[in-house]
């Protein structure tokens, strides 16, 4: 059992180290080369086009599920006036980035790992190197950045459609006035909430991009090797996202507290100096 745990930990750390080194190589390539813009733009457009339908569908239903669940709980306490705010806060802060990154991991991450893996096992990457080109710059970098950009773009679109879906479900199935539903948004959702969601989407995007590019680029062993790379890319991505979610949630929670205290302090200072009326937050 101890051996198994040690082996699992060793594999985990080995993979993590490999991904970190590969990502550093991508970053060095990005800062060391120019003219990658058009290909990054093209890849971002491809990823967004490929994933938008899935993200929008998932967004509508995730919003709907959350609103139904929250409504069941809030109804018991006669607190349905908070449904809109609570639902949107959960979507923006946690569920939206997580679901969208899982979707991207399954769809774009697996596709990228398969594409790069196939290029690796059919010697296309070696051929590129033999022609004096840098494969990381030509094929990995554009996909890497495109996945990160697409994560944020798709999160934005997914959240909008998700909130719209929630509002419709709350109105139709829960009998809540849409204006009342939307009226509680400001109480729960502020600029910082949206920023937290975007930061999470960015972090998960880096994970999806980094893991899938690494597993594809280092694939070996023919079709079987590509299959293994795709499977491992999906597994590791989801695992790292869950771990990253825990870590980022705690960090962002801490920063939220810092933000609140800083804001309260600033308001108190302004009130004390007569710049604003007293009363605090």
């Amino acid at each position: 059992m101890t051996d198994f745990a040690a082996r699992a930990l060793s594999t985990f750390l080995h993979e993590l180290g490999g991904i970190a080194i590969f990502n550093i190589r991508i970053a060095r390539t990005y800062f060391g080369t120019a003219g990658n813009g058009p290909e990054i733009f093209r890849q971002t457009a491809i990823i967004c086009t490929r994933s938008i339908t899935t993200v929008l569908f998932a967004g509508v239903f995730v919003g709907a599920i959350l609103v139904v669940q929250f409504n069941l709980m809030l109804k018991q306490y006669d607190a349905q006036m908070y449904l809109g705010g609570l639902n949107t806060s959960a979507l923006v802060r946690e569920v939206g980035p997580l679901i969208i990154s899982f979707l991207l991991a399954g769809k774009i991450g697996a596709f990228t790992a398969a594409e790069l893996g196939t290029m690796r096992v059919t010697d296309q990457i070696d051929a590129m190197e033999c022609l004096g080109a840098n494969p990381v710059q030509r094929i990995v970098l554009p996909r890497f950045i495109a996945i990160i950009l697409a994560s944020v773009i798709l999160l934005g679109l997914g959240l909008v459609i998700s909130i719209a879906g929630s509002t419709i479900v709350a109105t139709v199935f829960c009998g809540i006035n849409p204006l009342r539903f939307a009226g509680s948004f400001p109480r729960f959702v502020g600029v910082w909430t949206v920023a937290c969601g975007m930061i999470k989407a960015l972090v998960y995007g880096v994970i999806v991009a980094g893991v899938s590019c690494y597993k594809g680029y280092t694939a070996s062993g023919g079709a079987r090797g590509v299959g293994r790379a795709v499977t491992l890319a999906a597994v590791y991505t989801n695992l790292y996202i869950v771990i990253a979610d825990f870590i980022t949630s705690n960090i962002l929670e801490f920063l939220t507290e810092v933000w609140r205290i800083a804001l309260a302090g600033a308001l108190a200072w302004l009130a004390a100096h007569g710049w604003i009326a007293g009363g605090g937050l």
Binding site: T122, D123, Q124, D126, A127, M128, E129, C130, G132, N134
Partner: peptide
């Protein structure tokens, strides 16, 4: 290695054309 590789043209077993 890049300039050295440009001196060497390599033809791969599986053609390795960019599909």
């Amino acid at each position: 290695l890049m300039p050295v590789r440009r001196l060497c043209g390599m033809i791969f077993q599986q053609t390795a054309l960019f599909d």
